[in-house]
Every structure is written in C-alpha cells, then in structure tokens.
Design a protein around this nucleic acid. Structure first.
Lengths: 201, 201
DNA sequence: GTATCAACCGGACTTCAGTCCGTTTCACTC
DNA sequence: GAGTGAAACGGACTGAAGTCCGGTTGATAC
C-alpha cells in the first residue's frame, strides 16, 4: 500500500483551512484508493464506483472532490510526478541544477519524453484536463522558460517554451509511434527543434 | 439542409466496391444528419441516438460506420475542412500556390489557427482520433513538410513539420487562451518559431 | 454544552456511449 | 428468378459517468 504523504494544497499557516477535516480525509482516501486500483488493474479498468467503494465513501463524494474521472486521474498523476519534479528542482545534474543550461535542457527533454510515455495511460485518461490545468504542465513550461532565458533566448520566451514542449504531448507521441517512428528519432527531432530555438538568429 | 456531395473514399475504377449500396446510402444519411444536428444544436448536444433517429437508421449502424462518437465527429470535420484544403491546394495565393514559400507558410499558419479555433468544438469532440488518424492532420503535416523543403530546411524535416504544427492543436490553444493570451500573440509566437526553424543555423 | 448552518455525504437515478445477436438485404451465381 | 452467404441492419441491453437531494456532520459562536 502506498503510504506516501498526500500532497496538501498549501494549507498556508494563517488561512481558515478551506476544507473540512472529513473532506481532507476522504480526499486522501480516494487518492490512495485510485492509486492502488490503477496499479492493480490498469487505468482503463478503474471505474469511479470502484474507487468510491475501495475508499469506503459514496460516489457523489468522488465527484465533489475531483469533478470528473479526468480530474481524478490528474490528481493521481500529479502525485506520481512529484518525485520527478523533485529531481528536476533539486536532483543531481544534468537534470537537476548545476549543469550548463543547454545540458539541462537536453536532459529535461529526454526525461520528459520518457516520463510522458511511462505515464501514457494516465495522461490519456486525464485528457484535456491533463494538458490544460494540471500543475504538472505549468511546472514544465515554467522550467523550460527559465532555461531558455538562461540560454539567452529573446522574444516571447514563454510562448516559445510552450511551443517547444507541445511536440512531447502524449497524443502526438502516440501518433508518431503508431507510424513507426521510434523514441530515439523523436528525441533527436526534439533536440534539433530546441537547438533551432536557442540559436535564434 | 446541406446537400454538398459526400466525399467518397476513392471508389477506384476496377475495384470491387468495398461497401454495399445500402451502407453507402446510410453513411451519407448519417453524415448529413450529424452535420445538421451539430449546426442546429451544437456539438455537445448531439447524441448518437439523435443522429441515428434523424438519419432513419438504427443506432448499431452509426457505430458500424464510424466506430465511435469521436469517429463520427472526425468524419463531420473532414467534410467541413474539405473546402479549406481546396483553398490551400488550388486557391489564390498566398495561401494557395503562386506565392513564395515563406509567405505561403505564414498564410498557412494564420489560416490553420483560425480554422482550428472555428472548429474547436468539433475538434474537442473528435479528441485523440482528431489529432491522430484524421486525414486532416496528415494533410497539414504533408503541406508544411513540402513548404519547409522548398525553404531549404534540412534534417528530419517531417518531424520538424509535425513539431511546428503541434502548438496549433486545439488543446494547447484552449489552454493559452484560458490564460488570457490572445490569438494575435499566439500567431506572432508561432511565426517566430517558424522563422527559427527555417533559419536553421 | 448546545445551537446553528454551511459544507459534506451517500447512493438511487438519469443519460449516453458502446455491444450483441437474431433478422433482413444486397450482390452475385447458376 | 431462385438460391446463397456475407455484409449490413435495428433496437433492446449493458455498463459506467455524472447528477440530485434528503440526511448528516464538523466548525464556530455564545
């Protein structure tokens, strides 16, 4: 059983804890149940009723907490990616800090590509919610934005960062791999794209 | 009522017409019904039962022909985009042939962006099937690939073409616009990206 | 301790996408 | 123009997402 601490949505010291204690308990139980069921049976086999039953709560509660199946999957995903994000923020170089920015960018692209493929099922189940409002995506764009600035890229750098990460979205990777293009080639293509963005002109 | 001719899947002269006549009739009727219902009530309000009823066929038939709701939406979309594709292939420059390749690429990006936003609901309903196996996407990548070659881009040009179009997918546009980034800025960002790819270095 | 009420809970209910299989129709042959 | 079989048809059925609302509980005030 996964007993890793559930990521709290920043209970800032003085604030009037926006969630009631039973709600917090249920959120954690649901997330844990969902993680287990995904691990046991695969994403596609997990139903909302299953999750509710395993967590010992009613189905309505699942939807109040996570809004939809996609929303629940986003939450599960965010937990799964916490470790990866930690590696980027404070792990060893070249993925973590310490290496020159270009090397970090290379490592980041490679690592992101692998992570995306690993979590493919979860990302597909998260759907638009996954690429849209997930903290995970904000983090990715934020980090690339930062590296591009360090590399001296000028212009609308935030948009360039977004555009650079777009080809690594799961839908596109699925499409390319279905056409027989392997991961190595995709990575080379991405590095080429990154080089062209950084070179500027 | 839309009475534009349904796009036939190439009934090549000598081949043993792979679809029975009733199947062909029903495909056309279903596509027409779907188009009407989408126009009348919006994509989200259209159910498969509605479409079947309007076309005067059973529900099973809808699924045999189009596989899923997403598949049906892809088919509707392909018809809606036929006119646009014709403009690109044989319309007036700079979108159509005749203008220098860079100008064509600029016009293509602008036009694609507008088309994607216009067909947003349909594209979202088409989901992964929309970005993956749709003839529409093949066409887009194919065309950009061609223009990049004319512009002297070297390397894995097909992958670069795919990467260049990735930031114009509806999910990403939705995310950016939700954050308050307007279409004009997105277009500028895209043009900058295109310039960097073409400049090479 | 008790009153109050907003937030939360549960699980029956509704709505649809997608499946299944007995029946019908088309196309082709003799 | 009757026979034949593969393909297509239809609509009842299934399973899961998402909604609703009467009942419950936790936090706060006094």
């Amino acid at each position: 059983m996964s007993d890793s601490p559930v990521l709290m949505p920043l209970p800032l010291a003085g604030e009037p804890a926006s969630e009631r204690s039973d709600a917090v308990r249920n959120r954690a139980a649901l997330l844990c149940a969902a993680q287990q069921l995904v691990a046991e049976n695969g994403v596609d086999a997990v139903t909302m009723d299953d999750v509710a039953a395993r967590a010992g709560v009613g189905k309505g509660t699942v939807f109040r907490r996570f809004g939809s199946r996609a929303g629940l999957m986003v939450a599960v995903l965010d937990q799964s990616e916490a470790h990866w994000q930690a590696q980027v923020i404070s792990g060893p170089p070249p993925l973590g800090p310490g290496a020159p920015p270009w090397e970090r960018l290379e490592a980041f692209g490679r690592s992101r590509l692998e992570t995306t493929i690993t979590h493919g099922d979860l990302l597909r189940a998260a759907g638009a919610a996954g690429s849209r409002s997930s903290p995970a995506t904000s983090f990715v764009v934020q980090h690339v934005h930062h590296l591009l600035l360090e590399l001296g890229v000028t212009g609308d750098v935030r948009l360039l960062a977004t555009a650079l990460m777009a080809p690594l979205e799961i839908e596109l990777l699925d499409a390319l791999r279905t056409k027989g293009i392997d991961v190595e080639r995709i990575l080379h293509g991405w590095l080429d794209l990154a080089r062209r963005i950084v070179s500027g002109c």
